[in-house]
């Protein structure tokens, strides 16, 4: 499964599952507060100067910065694939 980390700059996708964060309910809640949710469209905007960490994403109508470690726990699917599935 691809995660947010695999997105190239300018690439869009749809969040499939907030996984891996596991039992850390607080972090999951924070992600939801920042607009992350299944089915929400994301777009990779920028990557940090060293090792591409942290990264900045557009999540819905908001831009959010987060570290690679956290981004790797959010699974995505191609924007087009999601649109087909929804039909």
């Amino acid at each position: 499964m691809r995660t947010l980390n695999d997105l190239r700059r300018g690439e869009r996708a749809v969040i499939a599952r907030i996984a891996g964060v596991g039992g850390d309910e607080i972090t999951v809640r924070r992600l939801h507060e920042m607009g992350f949710d299944d089915g929400v469209e994301v777009e990779m905007l920028h990557r940090g100067p060293v090792g591409g960490d942290p990264l900045a994403l557009r999540v819905g109508s908001m831009v959010v910065g987060l570290r690679k470690a956290l981004a790797g726990m959010i699974e995505i699917e191609a924007a087009a694939a999601f649109a087909e599935a929804a039909e």
Partner: peptide, 9 residues
């Protein structure tokens, strides 16, 4: 634990 960085721009 390593703190997370999650910030609105």
């Amino acid at each position: 634990p390593t703190p997370t960085f999650l910030i609105e721009m």
